[in-house]
Amino acid sequence: MNAGQVIFDGLALGALYALVAIGLALVFGVLRLINFAQGELITAGAYSLYLTDNLPALASIVICFAVCIGLSVLIERVAFRPLRGASPATTLVATFAVAFALEAIWLMAFSSNGKPADPLASLNQIAIGGSLALRWVTIVEMAAGVVLLGGVALVLARTSVGLQMRAAATDFRMARLLGVRTNLVISLAFVIAGVMAAVVAVLFTVQQPSVTPTFGFDITLVALVGAVVGGVDRLWTATAGAFAIGFASSMLADLLPSSQLQFQTAWVFLLVLVLLLLRPAGLFSTLSRSTVERV
């Protein structure tokens, strides 16, 4: 295959994972919580796109955003807020349980057969033709990744609520002692996570217009792994890690000899293992190891 094509595919996948990682990293930052239920937001958004297929694309997308943000905030309020201060194992299993229940709901409501949803199917058209096909969706994904990451970074750096969020992420108790309204800050993190999920739902249906109950869960798992490899406690490192794992697995698919192609997942995760062992605090992190062990 063409080398340029390989890179484009890698960029597209990487950008998608990076978008997922933004939400994961923000929530992890303020709550020290790995939110496995985040993938279900993407699935919910994608199913809402399917259900509103007869509406104009814009209306459908607006509804998708509302669904993702609403569900994200609802889950935090109902399932995670009562567990603040509980042990990490407990909160982790709680996010799992929520994901499990939601996935069962999707399965019951929509069956395991794929449902069509593609409000932006036109993005599949080729933007730059010739020997290497660059599709619009790749460009949009890259742009969305850069713009949203930049936007979130700007909110964190420049606004009061962003400052409060950084404070809560660093030292939750001290932030409260200064009067930071932590519930507000946490809700904001979940709102942003919902926005990211909606963006991913809209863009991912372009590449994969068939929505199944595990639509969002699978990509979230990979993005999460990437975020941790990069360093999940910081926005930049988490996104970079998620981007890297998307890019790497896409590259690997082309670089592996065909006899090894079936073992692509194993190779990717072997790489993950090695990186974690070499840099447990995160590939791009400058933190000492002991800091992470307290998580």
Binding site: V225, V228, T265, F269, L273, L276, L277, E293, R294
Partner: peptide, 29 residues
């Protein structure tokens, strides 16, 4: 042997990687 040095979230993800590798190998080999 190599993994037990890890704690917290790094340990969680590393053991998850082990699951993925086992699954992939058993499923394909």
């Amino acid at each position: 042997f190599p993994l037990m040095r890890l704690s917290g979230i790094a340990a969680g993800i590393a053991t998850f990687a082990v699951l993925q590798i086992t699954y992939n190998v058993l499923n394909q080999w």
